[in-house]
Amino acid sequence: MALLEIDELKVTFRTRHGPVTALDGVSLRVEAGETLGIVGESGCGKSITALSVMGLVPSPPGNIAGGAIRLAGEDLVNTSPRRLRRLRGSEIAMIFQEPMTSLNPVFTAGDQIAEAIMLHQNVSRAEALSRAVALLDRVGIPEARRRADDYPHQLSGGMRQRVMIAMAVSCQPKVLIADEPTTALDVTVQAQIFDLLNDLQRETGAAIMLITHDMGAIAEMADRVAVMYAGRVIEEGRADDILDLPKHPYTRGLIACIPNVGKGEGGEPPPLAEIPGVVPPLHLLGAGCAFRERCGSAFERCAAERPRLLGPAAHPAACHAVEEGRP
């Protein structure tokens, strides 16, 4: 049994265009101490997957319509809101994309971390505050004692994200969900944040679910990768395998999009690759493969039948062309 199991998860949203399926049968597993990367473009369902695990899908309009989420065997979909609140922050914690807006502007950094500690541990406020200072020190904030009294607007973006991380790990969660934790940060700060997450994971043995659209982050952090497109997992495998031998045309496209800084053969940098088109609106998904309009390998079957995740258990892909061995 994996630490976190997501089984055939289906999430629907009520919209102006009628109900749309934001997640359509997503299954994922994360083991303790492992980092699972979830990749895909905006709108593919990465964040909804994370919010579903947290029990934070806005409802209405969202609704978990089917499937299961289990943490160490405990069902999270049908559990009471009270129990979910217990688990949130203590067993499962989350780091958000925008450190600028994810911290409450009217409370100090120390207060916000101490609050997380007091919510789940039976300690005094003074003890929680001193633990908060220790955590700020641990996540690499200089002069932690003084910085604990700072408000978010007095901290830089990187520092704020460190505060978010300190808050998330304050109760030593078993699962840490990081939703694009470095997207809003400078490249140099990104590397520091990844190092910090790796270190913390080694110390605590937490499982990390890293949500990103950045293949560089995947190469840096992930043990395994799930590639998502239009609410489904379309390829899954070890990070090395996915990066070196991507199967699905979409994954190949994502990897081709990693900018190359070096000079090409003619002395010029190689042109930037792109995947043509955009993710189709979810209410317009037909019967076939959701990627077919943007795919160079599409053929008749792709329009008629939705591909299933097939192939070796260690590295399956959902593509008719891959299944039939077409180029």
Partner: peptide
């Protein structure tokens, strides 16, 4: 609808 309210919920606040 602000991000920090979502953060508060993610912490397990009532």
């Amino acid at each position: 609808g602000a991000d920090y309210v979502r953060t508060a919920r993610a912490k397990g606040a009532s």
